[in-house]
Design a protein around this nucleic acid. Sequence first.
DNA 1: GCAAGGTC
Length: 884
Amino acid sequence: MSGTIKVLNVAEKPSVAKSVSAILSRNQGLRVRDGRSRFNKIFEFNYSIRGQPCHMLFTSVTGHLMELEFEDRFRKWHSCDPADLYHAPVRKFVPEDKVGIKRTLEEEARRCQWLVLWLDCDREGENITFEVIDVCRAVNPHLTIRRARFSALIEREIHHAMQNLVDPNPWFSDAVDARQEIDLRIGASFTRFQTMLLRDKFVIDSATDDRNLVLSYGPCQFPTLGFVVERYWEVQSHEPEEFWTINCSHRSDEGVATFNWMRGHLFDHTCAVIVYEMCVQEPTATVTKVRNQEKLKYPPYPLSTIELEKRASRYFRMSSEHTMKAIVQEQKEHPEWGSYAQRLLDPGTGLWRNPGSGGHDDKAHPPIHPTKFSTGERGWSQDHHKLYELVVRHFLACVSQPAVGAETTVEIDIAGELFSASGRIILERNYLDVYRYESWGGSMIPTYTVGQQFVPTSLTLDMGVTRPPPLLSEADLLSCMDKAGIGTDATMHDHIKKLLDRFYATKDSNTRFSPTNLGEALVMGYDDMGYELWKPNLRSMMEFDMKEVSVGNKSRDEVLATCLQQMKACFLDARLNKVKLLEAMAVFFERSNRAVGGDNHTAGEVVRQCGLCQESSMVLKKNLDGNFMVGCLGFPQCRNAIWLPGSVLEATVTSNICSSCNPGPVYLIQFKFRQLEIPPGFNANHLGCIGGCDDTLKQLIEICGTGSRMSARGRGPTTTSSNVQRSSNRQGACLYCQQMGHSSNDCPSQFSGSRNSRSRTNSQNGDPSISCSTCRTPCVLRTANTANNRGRKFYSCPSQECNFFIWEDTLNNGNGGRSIPRECINSSASNSRRRGGHGQFGHNGARTADVTFVSATGDPVSSRRCYVCGDPSHFASACPNRGM
DNA sequence: GCAAGGTC
């Protein structure tokens, strides 16, 4: 061997090839030339690996070089039963747009002795590694193959990787192979199944051209949709519950302290009234505890991609997709945060701190950090500036000391009830100086000492109503996906976008997601089947198996076999239960009266291969008008069809094969004819063949005519009206409970369970006569469901932000329609009830105080009167109206 | 026409 060896190096993307080449060559003698692909240049330089002089060629791929697909004869949607896709042969191939890269690799690999792989060091990167190896080895089997391990484009790390090459890890790659195959088989089978089942049966108004609509299913997109739907159902089914809380404030020369009731709130009105009354009767507060504490507020962890997307969405309302697209690069001395950076670097300030570990490590990338200083470049959009600023400020914050505050908590006792107030002063702002997206409210409270007594300035019993959680925001959705392991940082935004593209969900101006009717119907359908196909569990289980493969605990084939077997069983079962999907769709969509396509028949069993297109199967079908035919699954491309006699009552494909018709097999069909429609001498039961050998069948077709002609006669008004009847006149039998006399829309069974509250909400649309006092939005009339006010109607603002609320029956009773101040507390009712307890607070005498108290309605009320009915002759605890 | 994963 001559002294120098030729080494082909391959990176995952062009920019890495360029950077690593620059580092290794130290920009000495670095040359660049074009390859076969426009974007993937080839860099050349000399280098020495452990003393061995090398001529280095450095090129790149752009992500995966290969794709997985079914073999050609399974690729057309009608070419096979979707269930066949669980075992149909698949192949890896280099798609058209990657052929140039493949040719570059082949050409360069032929003249090299070594192949060094610089793909990302995660599972996908390892899989791409093997794709590159396959291509290169095919043209040069003698290549020595080595893997470089690195995680960041830092000089020290790159040289270290080059000098410490390792072997590629086939387990990592196997895990990806398994994932790809499972995703393809599940995705393609369910997508074809649900698209062909539903698309032509319903008028799906969201799509402009629903002939081309694809109702896709994917192991990532569906759980993502599931999160959106689940939250939407939660919001829809929320039943507001009233609660009561006691608030106390105290004003002194030093300022105001607001004390919160340490019970939080009570859901039992009577109980709250009794406690309140006790406080009113004996209102002197005694300070029981004063705690002074230093509190730290820590800066955020270094940014992962997902965290960057979440924060960009939260702070700038930027979609995750947009964030990803915007270029996050460059850094230096900035007019705004430059001085902070200088302080940070000055050891004298002591501001620096090594960042914490966020617990996320994809093994392929370091945390996001500014890689170059910039005061902004020409051509940067506003969003680009904002993202750059976020990356820089976040990075500076990560390496800064936490903010320091002094917190004072004061606890007081009023008639045995505990209240607490706290105040905070910020002593050192530290990282908050640069991280302007976060704040730490400081509020002063007067100084108190233990044992001090005072009379509160106000003591009120306030009512609140529980509120539903908000719809999922983009940041929430990313969190849900991250937690459940749905998608990767690079693909999560794709899955979210797919929901919008497929008309499964919409995003409002507040970046909050709601399902469309289509999205809700699909999830509802699978939910009704009892399958969790829309939940993240399936993906999480797959992810667990992938991990097992990647560490060598399980083999790729073992995982593939088990997973595909289970999923096929699930698919077959879902198909048996397809009526659930149809019912769910029927809740939201009108039936289509489109009389086209094989999809409008009930799906049938295979009778023989199609002799006309030679591609698809001929199957027995029953048209919507009740007539039977044997048609090609390739319709409408292939229009081969055999129309059967109009007198057929029932027809079933048997497993018997005709002994004379070719090409076989041609399966015999068991017919049952309507006796009155066939001539005497013909048997109503007949085992027939459509291959051409069956004279009985031919005669009957001649005599009785075929379903085709019947159908042609029937088309037009008759067919239309029958279809219309199917769709709009669902009273025939309710889709929910199968009972006669009402439609599914009015089914009483709909009103149990959470999801179906949709119809209730729709009937409670805004009443324009009552508007929210804050945002002027028409209020929604709702019904309370609490022990004290069950069935009582109230109006509330539909906005999540406003707290407007008013009882309907107070509108015309001279009360002036005063709204009741309240606050939103989302704690669960059961917890609060547990805290509150019942009946343990007794009436303990009639002591009064000389302060004015404010009632829940805002009116001054004398402490000497019953709080419930206002009667001065008794207290609320003895009020005869209390139980009302 | 279908998935999810790379990346441009």
